[in-house]
């Protein structure tokens, strides 16, 4: 399976569709519109990269997620800010004890899953902002090992949480209740089948078919694994600035992969080169299948 880069969206600069200092998180909604957060703004792009609308956030955003009803969740330092689909601020959730730095948000049914990079674990809330339980906190290292500074998660069609545990070079699966269901990945050094460096993968997302798309840093690349942890494809090896890290990733219904270049402040879009991959077996449509 091979991918080719078809488009670059946004970039570094002062134009309305560009980001000046930071581009950190992306997400896709059900219609395929691309939400990107960076600086202190949310920008919404069409699939062809034209800016549809934009609005400010109260603090710099680290991640974004879009609910079925169009509600936009933006993770920030010490809070999650919510907007309606037109960009009107709804409210902000603050939980001084449990939200240090929100670097990923997952939405499934009545659950809002918030990755707290400061405390290195996932918090489960309901849609009214009530805390339910922690995920991934109960181990000897008191949470995920994220020397890269960002904790990322994604939710698959069956409601299983996939979380990157870069310090252990693993992708881990958890139930909503926090039970470890499975994991794959190990350090393999120069061999691309596993993960390299000190702490990879840094970010991930799950396709409808349960494939896992991850990004690595140093050197920056994106890869696709099947649900058992078998490497299917290296999406891109040299498409990103060498200083990139914590590159957020999203995948749409057509199998196109969106990866943030955190240095050049643009989003690279990759499309599968063979038709089989493009029309991957469809399973039950899932909420939040495209993670923030």
């Amino acid at each position: 399976m091979q991918y080719r880069q078809v488009r670059v969206i946004s970039g570094k600069g002062s134009q309305p569709e560009q980001f000046a200092t930071a581009l950190r998180g992306i997400a896709l909604d059900r219609t395929g519109a691309l939400y990107a957060v960076g600086d202190s703004e949310v920008k919404v792009f069409d699939a062809d990269g034209t800016l549809r609308r934009r609005w400010p956030t109260s603090k710099p955003g680290y991640c974004v997620a879009v609910d079925r009803d169009g509600t936009v969740y933006v993770g920030q330092e010490r809070q999650v800010q919510r907007f309606d689909d037109a960009g009107k601020p709804l409210d902000a959730w603050r939980d001084t004890e449990r939200m240090g730095l929100v670097t990923a948000i997952g939405l499934i049914e009545d659950n809002v899953l918030i990755a707290d990079a400061r405390d290195r674990c996932i918090r489960r809330y309901d849609k009214r902002g009530r805390f339910r339980n922690d995920i991934g906190k109960d181990n000897r290292t008191r949470g995920f090992l994220i020397p890269n500074g960002v904790l990322d998660l994604a939710i698959d069609a069956e409601g299983i949480i996939h979380a990157a545990n870069p310090g252990r070079h693993r992708v881990e699966r958890y139930s909503l209740e926090g039970q470890l269901l499975g994991r794959f990945g190990r350090f393999t050094g120069p061999d691309p089948r596993g993960f390299s460096g000190c702490c990879n993968p840094t970010n991930l997302t799950v396709t409808r078919a349960g494939r896992v798309v991850v990004t690595e840093k140093a050197g920056p690349r994106a890869k696709v694994y099947d649900a058992t942890g078998k490497l299917l494809a290296i999406v891109a090896n040299d498409a990103f600035d060498q200083n990139c890290k914590n590159m957020d990733v999203a995948v749409d219904a057509q199998g196109r992969i969106y990866v943030v270049d955190t240095v050049r402040l643009h989003i690279c879009v990759f499309t599968p080169m063979d038709d089989r991959a493009a029309s991957e077996p469809a399973s039950a449509p899932a909420e939040g299948a495209t993670k923030p």
Binding site: R168, F187, C198, C199
Partner: peptide
């Protein structure tokens, strides 16, 4: 210091992986 399991300054992370899963 992140006190990583695999420290890229301690290990040559591009060397082959041994039977313990370490560089």
């Amino acid at each position: 210091c992140g006190r990583c399991y695999i420290c890229p300054a301690y290990f040559d992370v591009m060397s082959e992986v041994d039977e313990n899963g370490l560089p």
